[in-house]
């Protein structure tokens, strides 16, 4: 997903001379082809996130469309004021490509784990937040990203993530996609809502639950902001339970956004909700992403368990 994303920047740059790439201090040789072909639109500016964001803002004020890339925790925490003021107050078309959303950097510890990035980015007016589930969806998203008139935070998964999205869906910013329809046209299904690679876990959980006779819709929300409230309302209205799944703290992310939308749309008569995410802690272990996701219950088996328990107590 990561490689696909940066390769797409090069592809976009070939077609549109407003497109600029700015990295901080990334892998040697990254986008070497772009550097060679467009030396005045490829920048590697060093470990200076505050400067990189301001620089991108200055370029965007004069008509450029910069794609800025570094590790997710650094592009959010380190330069939050620049993101808020330089990008969001000015409402500029700068794209933030955030490597390692969630627990991707598990072996590197909490300094590198972006567990609250969605929350702090979606709190900013004018910011758009996108977390594709796989490389194919990333490609479709990037193709439509150029002309979006606002700043975008792009959350990347690890890479090599299983492809679960469908080309026929295309990609529109702000739209949710139903990746699995509750089988047999059963009334009163369970609605699983995911974003990023957590959607893949939700799809697997739906498989497991189908075997138990529990039918689930799986709604994928690659755009967390602006949220496709109409889709949530449509599918939640007929559901007996809504479960959100995200590789992110339960504070302020997808679960919060969905809950807020339900409370407002359903005028207090909200369906039952379970929010699965990282509890309000920093990770205290290492290992790998899968291990930490399991530790926090972000794997299919636990999602299925949460649903079974909730449905059992209907």
């Amino acid at each position: 997903m990561r490689q696909t994303c940066v390769n797409m920047v090069y592809e976009l740059a070939k077609a549109d001379d407003r497109v600029v790439f700015i990295g901080s201090d990334l892998s040697p040789g990254l986008l070497a082809g772009m550097q060679e072909q467009f030396p005045d639109r490829w920048y590697m500016e060093g470990v200076s996130e505050q400067n990189v964001i301001g620089m991108a803002a200055g370029m965007a004020l004069d008509g450029a469309i910069p794609y800025v890339n570094t590790i997710a925790t650094f592009i959010t925490r380190r330069c939050y004021e620049q993101v808020a003021v330089d990008l969001c107050v000015h409402d500029l078309p700068v794209r933030l490509i955030a490597n390692g959303g969630g627990l991707v950097y598990a072996p590197l510890g909490p300094t590198h784990e972006a567990i609250e990035d969605i929350a702090i980015m979606r709190a900013l007016p004018n910011m758009t937040v996108v977390a594709p589930a796989d490389a194919e969806e990333m490609k479709r998203f990037m193709a439509v990203s150029v002309d979006w008139p606002h700043p975008i935070y792009i959350r990347l998964g690890k890479g090599g993530d299983r492809v679960v999205t469908r080309p026929e869906h295309g990609f529109a910013i702000g739209q949710a996609y139903l990746l699995r329809e509750a089988e047999g046209g059963k009334s009163n299904p369970v609605l699983l809502v995911g974003t990023g690679v957590a959607t893949t876990q939700a799809l697997q959980a739906a498989e497991m639950l189908a075997a138990d006779g529990i039918a689930c819709h799986v709604l994928h929300m690659p755009t967390v902001k602006p949220l496709d409230v109409a889709a949530i309302e449509k599918y939640a209205r007929a559901s007996r339970l809504v479960v959100t799944v995200e590789e992110h703290t339960v504070i302020g992310g997808l679960g919060s956004a969905v809950t807020d939308a339900l409370v407002e749309r359903f005028d207090g008569r909200v369906p039952r909700i379970r929010r699965i995410g990282i509890p309000d802690v920093f990770a205290s272990d290492y290992g790998n992403q899968e291990w930490l996701m399991e530790t926090f219950g972000l794997h299919a088996a636990n999602i299925a368990d949460v649903v079974r328990k909730a449905v059992g107590s209907d």
Binding site: G54, A57, G58
Partner: peptide
């Protein structure tokens, strides 16, 4: 930093 970006944009354009 904004000025650096504007100066680079001028060069680019």
């Amino acid at each position: 930093s904004i000025g650096v970006g504007m100066a680079l944009a001028a060069r680019m354009q």
